[in-house]
Design a protein around this nucleic acid. Sequence first.
DNA 1: ATTAGTTTTGGTCAAAGTGACCATAACTAG
DNA 2: CTAGTTATGGTCACTTTGACCAAAACTAAT
Lengths: 236, 236
Amino acid sequence: MYSSSANVSERQAAPPSLAISTVIFALRPSESSGRPTLWLPLVRRIREPFKGLWALPGGPLSHSESLQDAASRNLRETTGLAPSYLEQLYAFGGLHRSPTQRVVSIVYWALVRPTEAALADESENVRWFRADRLGELAFDHNAIVEYALWRLRNKLAYGSVAYHLLGEYFTLAQVREVYEAVLDRELDPANFRRQLKSTPEIEETGEYLQGGKHRPPRLYRFTGRPGLDPDNRSTL
Amino acid sequence: MYSSSANVSERQAAPPSLAISTVIFALRPSESSGRPTLWLPLVRRIREPFKGLWALPGGPLSHSESLQDAASRNLRETTGLAPSYLEQLYAFGGLHRSPTQRVVSIVYWALVRPTEAALADESENVRWFRADRLGELAFDHNAIVEYALWRLRNKLAYGSVAYHLLGEYFTLAQVREVYEAVLDRELDPANFRRQLKSTPEIEETGEYLQGGKHRPPRLYRFTGRPGLDPDNRSTL
DNA sequence: ATTAGTTTTGGTCAAAGTGACCATAACTAG
DNA sequence: CTAGTTATGGTCACTTTGACCAAAACTAAT
């Protein structure tokens, strides 16, 4: 089935190239309202096709690393970020994704804590954008980001993913702000609090967040592992 | 980044091969109880590695077809089946999946209606197995089937997938049998019926299933499209 | 024809969960 | 000391869910 030492007849036999890309989400305060919003880092294309346009960070799959390793290496190299959550999103393999050649991209999505995101590399060719205000991206990357957002919203509803956008300690209001930013609608503080308090994975600490303008909120901690991807089967 | 006409220095430069495989589910009556159970077709390995073991149907990705097209072509060629549902499962890319070379497999999962499954090709090298009684499969295919089963159970709970394992017309008891077979637990007939009747996608027909031993049940029809994968974006 | 057996179908009831909303506690800023 | 704001706890009506009951409708056997 898999021809080992093939008769490389110029055009037909060339296999599709395999690339890894990553959609990276982090919360940053909006310039206007100051409330946390979803941002993601993009890299500028420095060659054709789509030269000059912004694109998801990515690169080819090296021969000696797993898919997930390739994704986190790429994350580190292009943006200097260490993700708190990393999961495979989808394999995109349409015929005309790139005008010059056939490329199959295995795309991951990642969450980064605010502390990490603050010290991320930003340069001429790497810049952060609000997830709801991207321009036209290279390749099919607009559609990919849309799908990643859809997945993020879904996973959020299921439960365990919001805390990877926050630090180790957080207030319940901060969790609510994550939900409001991602789902883009306001939630009742009292009802939201009731739901969180009923989930056993959120642990009350004895500490309170000081320095605010109003009543100091209690700090909580998240205990519990994320889902069970094939990649994370070790954590079973 | 992607070396076009590369200096093919024997070992390192060879990119990982890209393959497509499919986990195909269908309902068949159990030999013992006669009640519907989950089955899936496997193909026998006729060469090394894992020669003689059973494996998921699959093959290389041709240069001129999309991932989904490759999956359905492979489905048709190896088993003669036309699926009623087809969705990408996951891209498996561990380093040691195949002992002889690095292979990245993009795996799809499919559902087949009973009528289709009945006239499926079965031969010396293609055979159906009960999903809960597979032996040791080639490569990491046991883990892949496990993950596919997990996905099937999840999608079932969400809603729209059970009907693709049934014919166009069905009784509510048949839907319940699908759930019982996949989730492997009994469900209360009255409560289950109440839930189904509250979903607008299930349409009552004027017809009844005749020929049974007891009160003839009403026939229903499913109206409504499956989920919104990137592959199925056309159906938005 | 009558009866027993089985499935289909509709219903009740209590428990649990959800959304809308009210009220008090606890802090800061003036 | 007061006004303003957030944190926190609570009520109430409505919906959903699981356990269970009972009548309807058919077949098979007597």
